[in-house]
Design a protein around this nucleic acid. Structure first.
Length: 643
RNA sequence: GGGGGCGUAGCUCAGUUGGUUAGAGCGCUGCCCUGUCACGGCAGAGGCCGCGGGUUCGAGUCCCGUCGCUCCCGCCA
């Protein structure tokens, strides 16, 4: 018989009854009845009940076992007595009658028990991560992660992609997040950087003619954490393709993402064809560029109703500034004073002056608006508002003007919300707003107020239970602006990725007057995101593969050519020696697993995560190093003074 | 860098308008218990109430500071 086990703790069934078996595992739960003692023995594969009574020569030793001790148990498998089977365990029909026990690994008192669902402080969980990982949910999450990555790999290979490795020690890049730096011993005073993403490498792989690249790529960024953003390091399904348009990238990636979600979604519906929503339309209809399409509410522009109306707060605001808009968020089922007041005080907690509302009730067989705004607006305009909202439900949402002072944004007016998305609200309220419904208002310059409108849309839908849970709703966000106005520094910045190709003829882009901010801010980039349930899953672009376009793009953002040469010289050189048009995307693996596992926090799907301050409490990283190590690196510390 | 929330037993938490000896459940220790599977019963140990200062006759409770954790903003091409 094997030194440690003949079976795993998840293997034994009724067909094995009568066998002499040997199991090894952790004492998950011990129930000592004095005369009979049960141990749930646990390993990676499952739980098996082992039992001893005073007739067993191992009984005395069994009574001394404690939770999480690792033991080997020999015994005979028998059927449980009638009525004592446990239908919740796959092994619940049988039990091992113990002949012999060997303690393989005793355990001291535990800082946190493995058994049970109780919550523990992050600090304890991270410090004793190996204990936390024994627990069922986290253990399952990590296994899910492995299966998701396997699935992504074979799907990519099926799609003709080949997996490459790129360097971990590379050069610091000037744009983007802060780099993690690694000092060079051989070159005193110089540093490597850990890659924020293998961006340049994957482009160089395309220039090298490999055509289709992918990698489960570690990425390192020295930025502060969020619940959905790991500190320090995270993984992307990084991919790149040559000779492709944006649509080709979509056609390659969408089946992979849809496929992996369908495989692991446990029956929850997954969007079959990801709708493509323009950045501008998303901002206008949802108040965010990562809309949760499970939320059927849409924001409607009702500025015309309030212009010169009796509700002077809005009327004056509109008159004072032509950029001011009134955005309406319908709230089906929110038509009570209690709910409206609660939303209003929520808005004040968010730092807003408040959240105006009208709620509807039936009076003499007619649905009428109530509340201070309705009173000031008067019955006719209130009725018109209601009719417009109802009437619009079936219409396409017309576009937003994300930066309305830029008149050139009129060029975006050709953007509309896809019909299947625009219909979400109509499907929810085919009859429009009725008794018991409400509508909320956000007034202001959209550039400043759209985020709050988006948060309010989410809050209203959540509180009214309108979010359709238990599904994965995807969309593409397309047509991102290439540049944005940096109000603090009064300059033009890249709004996303400096490596994106502007979505216009090359010569037209090269001819742009670098002082023509209107024109510059209207440039659309060949850039796109995948959004699922309100989470940005990935970002990608058709790359800028022409050096002259790259130089122009950086010049517009205020980078002189010599800076470009220093920082991206290798890249520019490569692009000037025969570069194919190419593009790609990089879905975030941690976030994919987080969504599939139904978790709210990335730490629940990462084996050994760092805490929010980018510390590994188990390994003690980061740590001080010896004077000798520093001297070898020609580094002298100049620490900030405390107090 | 900024803001909110939380710091009471190993863990999860309660602790009233400031008022005697700070409680419960889980866990731990001991005893009892022959069919449990969140086993049950009895007993016990375990507290710088995060830390420092202040107000007060009296502070877990109020005030100030500080540290830690957490969530958010900034940041994340």
């Amino acid at each position: 018989m094997h030194r440690y086990r003949s079976h795993t703790c998840g293997a034994l069934r009724e067909g094995d009854i009568g066998k002499a078996v040997r199991l090894s595992g952790w004492c998950h739960r011990i129930r000592d009845h004095g005369g009979v003692l049960f141990i749930d023995l646990r390993d990676h594969y499952g739980l098996t009940q082992v039992v001893a009574d005073p007739d067993s020569k191992a009984f005395k030793l069994a009574e001394t076992l404690r939770a999480e001790w690792v033991v080997r148990v020999d015994g005979k498998l028998r059927k449980r007595p009638a009525g004592t089977e446990n239908p919740e365990l796959p092994t619940g029909q049988v039990e091992v009658y113990i002949d012999e026990i060997e303690v393989l690994g005793p355990a001291a008192e535990l800082p946190m028990p493995v058994f049970g669902e109780q919550e523990y402080p992050e600090e304890t969980r991270l410090k004793y991560r190996f204990l936390d990982l024994r627990r069922e949910k986290l253990h399952a999450n990590i296994m899910l992660r492995g299966r998701v990555i396997d699935s992504l790999r074979w799907r990519m290979k099926e799609g003709g992609f080949f997996e490459f490795q790129t360097p971990i020690l590379t050069a610091s890049s000037p744009e983007g997040a802060r780099d993690y730096l690694v000092p060079s011993r051989i070159h005193p005073g110089k540093f490597y950087a850990l890659p924020q993403a293998p961006q340049q490498f994957k482009q160089l792989i395309m220039v090298a003619g490999f055509d289709r690249y992918f990698q489960i790529a570690p990425c390192f960024r020295d930025e502060d954490a969020r619940a959905d953003r790991s500190p320090g390091e995270f993984y992307q399904l990084d991919l790149e393709m040559s000779f492709v348009t944006q649509q080709d990238v979509f056609d390659a990636v969408e089946p992979v993402i849809r496929g992996v979600f369908e495989e692991f979604a446990e029956g929850k519906p997954v969007t079959q064809k990801f709708p493509q929503i323009s950045y501008a339309a998303a901002i206008r209809a949802f108040g965010t560029d990562k809309p949760d399409l499970r939320n059927p509410l849409m924001i409607h522009d009702v500025t015309n109703i309030f212009r010169d109306s009796g509700f002077s707060l809005f009327a004056k605001g509109i008159a004072a500034n032509p950029l001011v808009r009134v955005w309406a968020i319908p709230a089906p089922g929110g038509g009570s004073r209690a709910f409206c007041d609660r939303m209003n005080s929520w808005a004040q907690d968010e730092g807003q002056p408040g959240l105006g509302y009208i709620f509807f009730s039936t009076e003499k067989n007619a649905v009428v608006g109530r509340g201070p705004i309705a009173n000031n607006l008067g019955p006719e305009l209130t009725a018109q508002l209601k009719a417009e909202l109802n009437g619009r439900l079936g219409k396409l949402v017309r576009v937003p003007l994300p930066m309305e002072e830029q008149s050139s944004f009129d060029t975006l007016l050709s953007d509309f919300l896809p019909l299947e998305v625009a219909n979400l609200y109509r499907d929810l309220k085919p009859q429009g707003l009725v008794d018991g419904d409400a509508v909320f208002f956000v007034m202001g310059v959209p550039r400043q107020t759209y985020k709050f409108a988006g948060v309010a849309r989410t809050k209203i839908a959540e509180d009214l239970g309108l979010i359709r849970k238990e599904r994965f709703d995807f969309c593409w966000i397309v047509n991102f602006p290439m540049y944005e106005w940096n109000e603090e520094e009064k300059k033009i910045d890249f709004s996303h990725n400096p490596f994106s190709m502007p979505n216009m003829p090359i010569n037209a882009f090269l001819d742009i007057d670098p002082t023509d901010n209107d024109k510059i801010l209207s440039v659309i980039a060949n850039q796109y995101d995948i959004v699922c349930n309100g989470t940005e899953l990935s970002s990608g672009a058709i790359r800028n593969h022409r050096p002259e376009v790259m130089k122009k793009a950086f010049a517009i953002a205020g980078y002189p050519e010599d800076v470009l040469e220093t920082k991206f010289g290798g890249m520019l050189h490569a692009l000037s020696l025969g570069a194919p048009p190419h593009g790609g995307i990089a879905p975030g693996i941690d976030r994919i697993v987080m969504l599939l596992a139904g978790e709210e926090n990335l730490r629940e799907v990462v084996l050994f995560p760092m805490n929010q301050r980018a510390e590994d409490l188990m390994m003690g990283a980061p740590s001080e190093v010896t004077a000798k190590q520093l001297k070898e690196l020609s580094i002298r510390l100049d620490l900030p003074k405390k107090n």
